[in-house]
Design a protein around this nucleic acid. Structure first.
Lengths: 335, 335
DNA sequence: TCATCCTTCTACACCGATGTAGATCACCGA
DNA sequence: TCGGTGATCTACATCGGTGTAGAAGGATGA
């Protein structure tokens, strides 16, 4: 059996409640008593049982983070940032993977977690505006990331529109006119793909150009493999293009590989840009022009808001848009 | 206040214990009672309080996973595999990041976690043989990954020696004789770096060759950036080499970038190989020859062993070595 | 008819910590 | 000397489930 507070109390010759008071920094304890209790704790190797404390307090000190897949660098780096941010609040993070499946995302929202987590950070990929009622959860929740929901929940998001416009305008400024887009999701209306493609199209329109449908290549999910496949398909189609805007970095990296394999010079023949600024984007060959979505800010802000909600903040739902930054690298600018 | 078992019991007109029995599948319950209770649970939206159940059982259903950094692809992919494996046992995973600092690794081992986790999967990077006594923890623990400890703990590990020998022999078979190694940690004796370098050296010796000291480049930690820096240093040194064995993939990818930047042809002038087989290795340009350490097997085996320990298995400590696989790709074999 | 057995359900203590109320004692000022 | 005040500590109920023992009622078999 593990050492309990009772054991410590007995060992120190005080009541259990006094041990509890010592552990919680209650001020009115004689110095001599305190040291004696601390000595007993040390001697017995006592560790407080969190379940018991939680039972009283109704809190667990754990928050959940639900992401599609950790093996996607963007989400791994996001998880890193969230764990680090949570630590500053003394919170522990449990991670759930939804694999971007609508079913699993819904389960994640409604699973009887049995008060295991005090709050949830949720990065939905598959849910759509039609699922909005599902977001009205009992435990505090903050939506992370990419999608734009106007719903009954806090939301910390990437500035998809401004970021995509910025990178598009960068490509246009380089004189590129036939820009292929990788990673569209035809039929989707509110997802990241739709938002980013919409922003791309409107940037073109504002420049007096028309988006070219045959240069918009579907890819789902957004991975190196699908990016490579989309690029193969594009090349096979014979369609001419002088730039590629991949809707995220992994797509771009997959595409980059295929381009170079086919002897296409980047950026001379084709400029390539992505979105996310994962670590790898700085070290690919050529390094990748991309948009940094402000991951650390997103993580820190989301945790802050969540902690606020957990402490009873019931003001209006907030929608925070993180600051993006365009990083121009070799894949568009040469050396 | 949240709905408790008492509320459900009252609503269904039974005792709390009967509700408990229904939830736990106790067999001797009239069908009519069971449906009535289930209806009440549904009606009130009852969720069992895990803290309370845990208080009785002494279990939390949570295991910890301690890794250096999730933003390193290898560990992100490992975490993915661990979470997936844990799920099949109905376990939840909390992740801690040690940043590969000895201090934080020790804290991780000894932190009063307050019975929060039933067991711990620990991937140490900074700890050495001298810390072996610290591995004698109260909660069940399985060591993961890279380092070779002969200590008082279960250990599921990468076959560093055989894997490194295999990739070294592959380079030798290609006729390469001046093989640079990136990522050594001078002075270290038992770490992954030392083990892999030792295996490399002995493979050379077995082939009748001598390792060349000036081609052994330090890099710590193992990241793209440090890999790139080490390669810059190597090139600056003027030392000739016809192959690079990077002690992990991210180092290799950083080095690859620098090589190509300098106009070196890979693999014609210099062959490059890594270790880990992260997803990116398949999609870099050129794609990267590397050793797959058997991540999924490691994760699944480690979770299995841990679950065994948690259930009281106190047989001798096990040391499992995962099956590795050499993946030959463009960076050594051309197209 | 009665002891026995089985099914179904309940009362109660208990897991380990903490909030509340109150006991004890020294000390202070009137 | 006595009520009052503050410091220090303790007894006890309580958080929300579950293990244990056993009660109630019907069926079974001798």
């Amino acid at each position: 059996m593990a050492v309990t507070m009772r054991d410590v109390a007995q060992h120190a010759g005080v009541s259990p409640k006094t041990v509890s008071n010592v552990m919680n920094g209650y001020p009115f304890i004689r110095e001599e008593t305190r040291t004696r209790v601390l000595a007993s704790i040390e001697a017995l190797g006592y560790q407080m049982n969190i379940s018991a404390r939680n039972l009283k307090s109704g809190r667990t000190g754990i928050i959940g983070l639900a992401v599609p897949e950790l093996s996607q660098p963007y989400f791994a780096e996001l998880a890193d940032a969230v764990i680090t941010a949570a630590e500053t609040h003394g919170l522990t993070v449990v991670i759930e993977q939804t694999n971007a499946l609508r079913d699993r995302e819904l389960t994640t929202l409604h699973r009887p977690r049995g008060h295991l987590v005090d709050g949830l950070l949720f990065s939905p990929l598959a849910l759509g505006q039609e699922d909005i009622e599902h977001l009205r959860t009992a435990t505090p929740m903050v939506l992370l990331g990419e999608r734009m929901f106007h719903g009954p929940a806090d939301h910390v998001m990437i500035d998809n529109v401004a970021g995509t416009r910025a990178v598009t305008e960068h490509l246009l400024a380089l004189g590129r006119r036939r820009i292929a887009v990788l990673g569209i999701h035809p039929g989707e209306r509110v997802g990241t793909a739709a938002i980013r493609y919409g922003a791309f199209a409107s940037a073109l329109t504002d420049a007096g150009l028309e988006p070219i449908d045959r240069l918009a290549m579907p890819a789902d999910p957004w991975q190196r493999r699908t990016g490579a496949e989309a690029m193969e398909a594009l090349i096979a189609s014979g369609e001419k293009f002088d730039a590629v805007l991949a809707l995220n970095d992994t797509l771009a990296l997959g595409a980059l590989r295929v381009l170079i394999q086919h002897g296409v010079r980047v950026p001379d023949d084709v400029a390539v840009a992505g979105f996310d600024d994962i670590d790898e984007a700085s070290y690919s060959i050529p390094s990748l022009t991309t948009v940094n979505p402000g991951r650390r800010q997103i993580a820190a802000t989301a945790v802050d808001i969540l902690v606020g909600r957990m402490n009873g903040d019931d003001t209006e739902h907030r929608e925070v848009v993180a600051r993006y930054a365009l990083h121009v690298r070799e894949s568009t600018s040469g050396h």
